[in-house]
């Protein structure tokens, strides 16, 4: 059913080429051979030894873009995932510190709690859009900064570990750690389960379910939604809630599976990287997994390249920015 549209082709070209273009230009300014940089990025992202780390990074992008792709179907432009991930992570760590000894149940409860916090955070711009007409692009983006400073306060203040030198929470009790399943890597259950669950779920919901069609009707505007008997306001809040929930879960997986505590830099821009992936996935849901892995690999590869070449450390941010600027307006155009 999803039709090949010119928009899909343009979007794919943007997602694939924009990071490489950004890296090349950065190299040029830094006096480094662009070809060499791109080689390191690809080696660092996609050589066999690096694949586990790439998958690790692809996981939060995948989970977040799943929720976003549903929101984007409804033309609700949540770009506040970064903040939702961060607050989901902090919420998970906070409740996790109270759930030590509960094991798997503790993991499940704290994961869902992280999701709920992300969802509530996302519901605020949802409510503002639905009942006050506030443009969610601005409000969700602004709320990323609110989240950042709120996190900064919490991690330096009430939630700060008394024994740590850094602004971070205490480490979770060992039984809440989601341990690596493949020896010698950090690949845990989340990293293995996410692609297996989310890739088909995205396809089914976007292309084969009544929800996908309902979301598209919402995306056609409040008037058409009302024609078909949909309460557009409620639907907007629900959609924001859902996408925030998944972003929050992405934050939870980072805490439980990798860092075992919350820290300010827990999301490496995953909330922004998920945006172009979700833009494409809402047009062609089968691409959600390959694109998540691709951008996970690029982020990983850029870090490797930075270690080997004198590329500025802000390269990742520039890639995120360019992807955002290039993909979102294209998606928003009717």
């Amino acid at each position: 059913m999803p039709a090949r549209s010119p928009r899909l082709v343009t979007g794919l070209l943007i997602v694939v080429l924009a990071p490489l273009l950004a890296i090349s230009i950065l190299s040029l300014f830094s006096g480094v051979n662009a070809v060499e940089t791109i080689y390191w990025v690809f080696w660092g992202g996609f050589s066999p030894t690096q694949i586990p780390e790439t998958m690790l990074r692809a996981t939060p992008i995948l989970i977040t873009s799943f929720g976003l792709s549903l929101a984007y179907l409804a033309r609700i432009w949540n770009i506040g995932s970064e903040g939702q991930i961060l607050l989901g992570a902090i919420a998970t760590a906070w409740i996790g510190l109270h759930l030590g000894g509960l094991g798997v149940i503790g993991v499940i409860v704290s994961t869902i709690f992280g999701g709920l916090c992300g969802a509530l955070w996302a519901s605020i711009p949802g409510l503002l859009r639905a009942y006050r007409g506030a443009n969610e692009v601005f409000s969700t983006l602004m709320m990323n900064y609110l989240a950042l400073y709120l996190a900064s306060y919490l991690l330096q203040g009430p939630l700060r570990s008394p024994t740590s030198l850094f602004p971070e929470t205490a480490t979770l009790s060992r039984d809440l750690w989601v341990e690596p399943l493949i020896p010698g890597t950090r690949v845990n259950a989340f990293v293995l389960l996410s692609p297996a669950l989310i890739a088909p779920a995205t396809y089914i919901l976007v292309a084969r379910s009544t929800l996908g069609i309902k979301l598209r009707v919402i995306g056609e505007g409040a008037e058409k939604a009302r024609y078909f008997g949909i309460d557009a306001g409620k639907a907007i809040v629900a959609t924001m809630f859902l996408s925030g929930f998944l972003a929050g879960i992405a934050g939870s997986t980072e805490v439980l599976g990798i860092h075992h505590r919350a820290l300010p830099s827990i999301s490496q821009g995953y909330g922004y990287l998920a945006i172009p992936v979700a833009v494409i996935a809402s047009l062609e849901p089968r691409l959600i997994l390959p694109l998540s892995i691709y951008l996970g690999g690029v982020v990983n590869g850029v870090e490797v390249a930075q270690m080997n070449l004198s590329i500025p450390s802000g390269a990742s941010y520039i890639i995120q920015g360019i992807l955002l600027i290039a993909s979102l307006p294209m998606a928003m155009r009717r």
């Binding site: 059913m1 039709a3 089914i204 084969r208 379910s209 009544t210 929800l211 069609i213 309902k214 598209r216 009707v217 056609e220 008037e223 058409k224 024609y227 078909f228 008997g229 949909i230």
Partner: peptide
Amino acid sequence: SRASIPEMPVAINISMRSIIGGRISLL
């Protein structure tokens, strides 16, 4: 166009009301 999504298939547009009115499920 006020009662349909013209970009979607004829069949989906015909069933639009029942698709939207029902619970979330496979088509």
